[in-house]
Design a protein around this nucleic acid. Structure first.
Lengths: 228, 228
DNA sequence: GCAAAAGTGTTTATGTTACACCCATGT
DNA sequence: ACATGGGTGTAACATAAACACTTTTGC
């Protein structure tokens, strides 16, 4: 070990923006902080990176500890390091975006966090630190990515209707889409596979579909181009 | 200050992938390391983040110190934090991408680095640390972004010919493009402004153009969509 | 029978691709 | 005169956008 350890260094945290979709709108997981600073305020789940821990592992650990979520889609977003973003001193945070299916994941607090809950993006409480900013960047990223990558499937149940898929796109993109054109665009790629199962309920049953990840990856390798 | 300082923490660095374009191919700035580890190996310019220094400021400072580059386009790329990526111990690096016009920027070493030089992407030496990986991600990002954003203008002189612009796109995307279709696609947006100046040289003079940043930003705000 | 969501095709407009020749200059 | 890169248009094709009615179910 050379001069690497000779001077003070920032603290390093990870923060996770966990998106979910309930059929109507996008939601995000927040935890109520149990400690100062910002005690009792809502914040993104996250915490300090351990010395021998990869960044993504730290993000997954914090998610597990604070929200009981595991095996979720997780991707690095951006690193936030403005001096003064944390009143405790210099803290640099590597932010991650996670996508989960709320039906599979109840989002209950476990250890550190006294409470964890889903919030609709339209009804957010004030957030601790610069977490509004992190969340804003995360929303932009999600909107940008959804158009070129079929991320939607990380947010929907394994079997879903085309109506649900479209509602998700509409919620993320903030626009309304034409039902026929939406299907015409997606279905020919054949990574959305129709099943012989249908929903039941008050209305006409809708056909269920599943996402064919292998088919999608094969297409991707061929350098295909897909845009909603 | 609470428990923030109670345990050991990773060291934090910034590393910069500086791209330039010389009319023929993409180049990147490397510095020859003067210290262990990887003494005398080539590496990306970068260094430790100071305690009261914003991340981007640290990146700009290191660029200035190691390569004399200033006032360049700079954007955060991704954070690399795999345990073991630095033999000195746990070092997490926030990587940045910079775009510069090589004509304006000679890239001479200044302080820390004994040497700084431009390397064509096709003739790279072995790099220190995980800098190959960082560079790989940077190239991908550049390729991805160039198609939706007119980044090209950061890499070309203020006044440029359409031939130069096309050569740049071809170098970054790794494809060849049709001259007529390329112009037909870009010019109607009117953010490339023809000038009444022409090159001189061995061949027919080419009209010079400039990038109209305001026009581009006005278009962007209108949510326009541009793709090569 | 009515309310509510599912499902389905065609036409028109727009954008993309492919393609070949003449022009201006320096040597 | 020739070598070199600059500059220009059109037709075929593919993709995107606009648009309305019928079906099935639960109540």
């Amino acid at each position: 070990m050379s001069h690497t350890y000779e001077y003070p260094r920032p603290a390093l945290t990870v923060d996770c923006v966990v998106f979910g979709f309930d059929g109507a709108g996008l939601k995000v997981v927040l935890i109520r902080r149990g400690l100062e600073p910002f005690k009792d305020a809502w914040a993104l789940p996250g915490g300090f990176v351990q010395m021998e821990e990869n960044l993504e592992d730290a993000a997954r650990r914090e998610l597990r500890e604070e929200t009981s979520l595991k095996n979720v889609f997780l991707e690095q977003l951006q690193t936030f390091g403005t001096v003064g973003r944390d009143p405790r001193g210099r803290v640099v945070s590597v932010a991650y975006v996670a996508l989960v299916r709320p039906d599979k994941h109840p989002a209950k607090g476990d250890t550190d966090a006294s409470e964890a809950a889903w919030f609709p993006l339209s009804e957010l409480p004030p957030l601790a630190f610069d977490h509004d900013e992190i969340l804003r960047v995360a929303r932009e990223r999600l909107r940008g990515k959804l158009r070129w990558q079929p991320l939607g499937f990380e947010l929907l149940p394994e079997k879903f209707t085309l109506g649900q898929l479209q509602a998700l796109y509409e919620a993320v993109l903030g626009t309304s889409l034409d039902k026929r054109n939406f299907r015409k665009k997606l279905l020919p790629y054949d990574f959305i596979v129709p099943l012989e199962q249908f929903t039941s309920g008050q209305h006409r049953p809708a056909r269920l579909h599943r996402f064919d990840r292998h088919r999608y990856e094969a297409l991707s390798r061929g350098g295909f181009h897909f845009e909603i």
